[in-house]
Design a binder for these strands. Structure first.
Lengths: 375, 375
DNA sequence: CACGTTGGGT
DNA sequence: ACCCAACGTG
């Protein structure tokens, strides 16, 4: 039995706006710790990973793991019936084939209930293909949106290059070539730290915990990218491996047979890999945030909103990286800017890019394999 | 070698927004004095003339005259990658086939570079078909925008009539007729002066100078309009003169073989023709600006921004004029309202209308032949 | 169903 | 001037 009470329905609405064009059906995997969605996009090139930790909810209860197969188009329709500031409660009985949604206006003068049919979806649980990166760029999400939107006017793909100089986005097109160099903010070039997605959307939060996809056994086998058929995106699917002539490469989706064995393991991972280089700057919280620019809180009204350094460009880099990606997908990813004012790009050469928007107690992450043969 | 540094990319962006629907390809003629663009619109009915004086730029250098053949659609794409307040530098090497654009964020933390391919464009240098008019109406550009937009909903064409009473815009349509009378502001009816476009966009500036299109020999041969095929616009092109059955009339494009003979001539014209009527109110700066409404400077930060009398309607008239024009084109012209808060309409009977938006050190001007047979 | 364009509001 | 929403088109 699931019951999850979200303070603001708007969060879920924005999330669906972000991914509804990328994914049409997906399982919301609910368990005691979190609600997780992992799915490949419709063209099987990108991978979307969403997580709402239990702590993201005002109230959360899930007795046993249950997958809720949801048609996102339907869910979107139902969510559009909620106002952004409605309190939204999701309920599903064990083995239920419907999801109940209750919207309560904040002043309680309105209560709406919706029942949405669930469906069975083949749960090809996808192995998230990476755990550690050579570079992380943290930048304002609006800046990222702007850059990929601009460059998408010129060409099909963008070359992202991270160096000590900063991060460069470059695209070549028929009529024009474009290149945007973003210099890191003062003092915001960091190297020697372990770069990996934080376990949770919580900024500077505790690092261990309920990570679902980090698998210690997968720690060093970063690249699952096949390098054939160069110069194209990589298909992260496995389903159509042999019978289609798509130009895309593919990830090897790995059966996630270690799920659940992982809790409280990340913190130890970092400790053991941290030797021999600069330690992270502040206390060991895994986020490596420099102490510069102690911005005045932006008075956004929401105490939970992380509001520091949102305008900074932070570059963490252990190695120069240069990768090429399809702009079409990045433009799609950038729609999640409504969910966070910052975005992180994590990259290693020849490894899928991780684009992560972290919010209060959760995140939305996108994985996109690089085009190869031109990076 | 060209290098032109513009303080605000927004100026160029607005310019391109203005003309991109009218012209698709054009040469930017760069020389020591200015950058000039002259082109006919795609249907060869209207003529666009743009000038940026060297002084319009923060830095300007052009060693030798060079035409830059630009596809405006491409340039528009590239310019959309600039923020309005970016500093924009245009560079082109001699004989280059690319134009380099550099956008610097004001705080310099972002530098974007774009290379746009240039193209060869037949430089049918167009003789701007007039130098002196019987009437000039200066009005707020927003007012002009509103009038032509309103009337365009009623009919295809507008009759513009300038008299001592004011200026009347009238359109007859299937469902309704409309007429807008604009009275000149107090004391803003001027007659007996020479009415011609100023040599430069600079308000109240020196009148002689680097005029490219003024030709003394053409001064009195105003009308080059052929009066056949009545009731239609006039094609300003010469290229398709004989082999097409367009309904439009045509200007005679004249080879501009007297370019440069004109300097410092306008001021003398004014002196000798100035007698016998109200003098212009302020000092003889050629703009005939009344002293009314000594507006408080609008604190726009730019000392060069002309900000007085923007709400006045000024009519200079030596002869009653009544002309009919296609509203479709006027609506298009009026998009340049973003570039200046004032617009000037210069008219003589049976001669193309000149619509001029003057800005700091440049202008954009449109020429449109009247429909004949109904004026 | 998605994208691009146009119009209206802040 | 900028951002958001709605409409129409591909």
């Amino acid at each position: 039995m699931l019951e999850a009470k979200l303070q603001e329905a708007g969060t879920l609405k924005k999330l669906l706006d972000s991914i509804k064009e990328l994914v049409t059906d997906a399982n919301f995997e609910c368990n005691e710790e979190a609600i997780v969605l992992q799915a490949m996009d419709n063209s099987h090139v990108a991978l979307v990973s969403v997580k709402f930790s239990a702590a993201a909810f005002k109230r959360y209860r899930c007795d046993r793991p249950m997958p809720l197969g949801v048609n996102l188009t339907s869910l979107n329709k139902v969510l559009r019936c909620a106002k952004d500031d409605d309190i939204c409660t999701l309920k599903a009985a064990d083995e239920a084939d419907v999801l109940n949604l209750v919207y309560e206006a904040k002043n309680s003068d309105r209560i709406a209930k919706y029942d949405m049919k669930l469906m069975d979806i083949d749960a090809d649980t996808l192995q998230i293909p990476d755990t550690e990166y050579d570079a992380r760029v943290t930048l304002p999400s609006s800046e990222f949106t702007r850059i990929v939107r601009d460059l998408s006017q010129l060409g099909e793909s963008v070359r992202i290059e991270v160096s000590k100089e900063g991060v460069r986005f470059a695209s070549d097109g028929e009529a024009a070539n474009g290149s945007v160099l973003l210099r890191q903010s003062d003092g915001a070039l960091i190297s020697g730290t372990t770069i990996r997605p934080k376990s949770d959307g919580k900024e500077g939060g505790e690092d261990g915990g309920d990570e679902a996809e980090g698998s210690s056994s997968a720690k060093k086998e970063k690249a699952k990218v096949k390098k054939e058929k160069g110069d194209e995106d990589v298909d992260m699917s496995h389903e159509k491996d042999d019978n289609e002539d798509e130009e895309e490469e593919e990830f090897k989706p790995v059966e996630n047979d270690e799920e659940g064995e992982e809790e409280q393991e990340n913190e130890e991972d970092e400790e053991e890999e941290d030797g021999g280089s600069k330690k992270r700057k502040k206390k060991a919280n895994g986020t490596s945030k420099p102490a510069k620019k102690p911005k005045t809180a932006k008075s956004k009204g929401k105490a939970t909103e992380e509001d520091e350094s949102a305008t900074d460009v932070i570059i963490e880099m252990n190695q120069h990286v240069c990768l090429t990606f399809s702009l079409k997908y990045l433009v799609n990813f950038s729609k999640s800017a409504t969910l966070s004012n910052k975005v992180q790009l994590m990259m290693s050469n020849d490894v899928p890019l991780l684009v992560s928007y972290d919010f209060n107690q959760g995140y939305i992450r996108y994985y996109l394999a690089p085009k190869i043969g031109e990076d």
